[in-house]
Design a protein around this nucleic acid. Structure first.
Lengths: 221, 221
DNA sequence: CGAGCCCTTGACACTGTTCAAGGGCGGTGG
DNA sequence: CCACCGCCCTTGAACAGTGTCAAGGGCTCG
């Protein structure tokens, strides 16, 4: 089955550009081919919270297919390349191959599990633990798609981005990264993250990757 | 179609009892008939974060159907009554009535949208705003199922529960509730919440209920 | 009557924010 | 080619918000 043929030709989007605005009807979903994408929930006072971060190979708005509109915006964090697929095509695909429907459902639930983990992170961890926890997740997810080895990977975010992910100010992120660096746990400069001691980092933040459901077979025997 | 016949007979569970533990294989899903249920993500140090709260009429672990195990525990917050349905029955149901599959998927995505909102709440709101925001959500959700009128409803939680929902200590919840009471925004005693000025409360916390997707038709024309 | 839970209040410590200033770096236009 | 501007990071000092610890009161249940 030539899946690519069902997608529109790849489209390039500049860093910091909005890909899908909150609240409007969506008629297609977006597969991220390269670059990083963030999803933001923000309020009237301009406070922005990153509620999801997507790596290449992930749909950034597959939940928009059943929901029909998004409760948050979707923005490119770096220059990105995306391919979109119309919702009517998704419907046809799923009708033709019901197993695909299960895979799509599963995929949106992974997203939800990550969201719960972020809720936990923001609700119960202090600043250092939050940053450590975030880097643990990133190391593992990048490793899983073949970017880096779980200890060293490209993560082209600003400290303001990290703050928006971890519920901190950019100033405090800077201090926390300094502290983690002197403790030999994270060095992060020029968009390259290095974790000399991933186990130590996981211990510090109480990190466990169970919520990523790696190695789980896809749904329903 | 006699849906009830597909569920096991209702089962009563005492307050504070675990309904589904984290990490184990699940073979059926649980519909909440009465009472309140919480889902918790916790760490080795015993810090607990409420990551979802369920009202009667909601599935508390429908995502366990595709995921096959849960990344969090599910616990009764009050005495509850539940009915379970086996996953094999769900599979048969969905195969027989594909539209049901869409509804189930949609339902788990509502859950995910709420989780994003909680992430935002914890990441970007201060203590008073968090509590206000939480009460706004509860008022609307209880109203939607015919419990209360959007201004007054039963919410039999302790202040420790509220703290676990809002990422605060029980002590600080007590102070915040005191402050909101003197400002005429919330009175909460004996498990009864009263919001004399719901609009004021929504303004204070920047609350918008868009993420609950009320009035949205179910998926796919 | 006593035990235990829940809520409240106070004093104090600590974590993270705010405000401010300065340095490095890259891109752009003169 | 250089000067300038804007963005990003760092650091300091003062401050605000929230947690911690502790004590006491009310209530329910045994």
């Amino acid at each position: 089955m030539a899946l690519e043929a069902l997608f529109a030709p790849p489209r390039q989007i500049a860093a910091r550009e909005e890909i899908v605005p909150a609240g409007v009807d969506v008629r297609h979903s977006t597969l991220l081919l390269s670059g990083l994408v963030g999803r933001y929930r923000s309020d009237a006072q301009g406070r922005r919270q990153l509620v999801a971060l997507h790596l290449p190979g992930e749909f950034v708005d597959l939940h928009g297919y059943p929901l029909q509109r998004l409760d948050h915006s979707v923005e490119a964090l770096t220059p990105v390349s995306v391919a979109t697929i119309g919702h009517s095509r998704l419907t046809a695909l799923i009708e033709g191959f019901p197993h695909l429907g299960r895979i799509f459902w599963f995929s949106t639930l992974l997203d939800a599990a990550t969201s719960r983990e972020w809720t936990f992170r923001l609700g119960r961890l202090d600043a250092e633990e939050r940053v450590a926890h975030f880097f643990c997740e990133m190391a593992i997810r990048f490793h899983a798609i073949g970017h880096g080895d779980g200890r060293r990977f490209r993560l082209p975010l600003t400290q303001t981005d990290l703050g928006e992910a971890c519920g901190l100010t950019n100033v405090h992120v800077s201090r926390v990264l300094g502290s983690l660096r002197t403790r030999g746990l994270i060095t992060y400069a020029d968009g390259i993250a290095e974790l000399p001691d991933p186990d130590g980092l996981a211990t510090l933040s109480g990190y466990s990757a169970d919520y990523l459901y790696f190695g789980d077979t896809h749904p329903i025997p």
